[in-house]
Design a protein around this nucleic acid. Sequence first.
DNA 1: TATAACATGTAACAAGTTACATGATTTC
DNA 2: GAAATCATGTAACTTGTTACATGTTATA
Lengths: 174, 174
Amino acid sequence: MDERSLLLLGILMVQSQHGYQINEFIEKNLGRVTDMKKSTAYATLDRLCEAGDVYMHAEQEGNRPFRKVYSITQRGTTHFFELLRFNLAKADKMNFSSDIGMMFLDHLPYEEFFPLLNERLVKLHKQIELFESTPPHGYGLGVDLAMEHHLVHLKADYHWLASVISRLQATQAK
Amino acid sequence: MDERSLLLLGILMVQSQHGYQINEFIEKNLGRVTDMKKSTAYATLDRLCEAGDVYMHAEQEGNRPFRKVYSITQRGTTHFFELLRFNLAKADKMNFSSDIGMMFLDHLPYEEFFPLLNERLVKLHKQIELFESTPPHGYGLGVDLAMEHHLVHLKADYHWLASVISRLQATQAK
DNA sequence: TATAACATGTAACAAGTTACATGATTTC
DNA sequence: GAAATCATGTAACTTGTTACATGTTATA
């Protein structure tokens, strides 16, 4: 919703782009930061257009498929800064869907939940490796910080889970 | 969706309860773990009923408003364990809406973003304090672990943000 | 000549939220 | 007698996803 708009407006703050281009940029570079899908982006761009935050004009080079090029308007720029300020001052509400399962851990015997948690630990480890093997984009300080933020939480999650597993193991050993 | 069902089934694994009771339990004790709203719970209970995971019977004590008491069925129990195993083995996909804003930090001058990030830091601090001032529930190992998990991420977020602020300050000072 | 990449969308669906509606009973 | 608590919902809306539809051009 608001974050989707902020994302699109922010991308258009750099330069005018057409929808496909925007979607590609998101897919290739921001897959970790957002999960917005293409059709959502197209629809949101439409909404921003209607709201006057963004201005669209069609372009066509030769016989290539036509494109809708979006540019941010003055109004959109103002809106962007509003959304940005709000977003930066806001503390994320974090809720982790895995906490739901965690709460009911007690219903499974050790032999059951131990391999399950280990499976999760391995998945987290792979995500971290993937992250660390990817070089920084160089799209600017902000983007790098966002990536760093993500990594911090991945690692926190990993270490916590590892500690849970070893504590549970210790309890079991008694 | 699946987590909502898991949550409700898990609550009913302990004992049969009526909707209001379930909602109250969630509101009072699990507000940190889930953001499910009352009407969603009622609707989900209906769906679980239709699916045969849960069995409903109406009760009325004297003249008090009637209640729908839900009990988990054999099928529901099986389903609960399926959902639980899947949930425990799963790594959360984490995306933080605040990362969107972070990415565009560069668009604001230091004098602007510094107080905004500080405002966020204060909010995080308050959340952590609130968390730590609340005694553990004693609803079991799993619930305590889920709370601990939440706190771990809050603290990771806090420390990261503090480090970002001091690094940005250092850059600025040059 | 097939298929990947370019470029846009729509329609149907699913999930969840908000705000409202209802009505009894206990408490102040 | 008013307000809070008990107990349930429904209808309208928002948001987002999935899967499909369309047609061109470069590449293998």
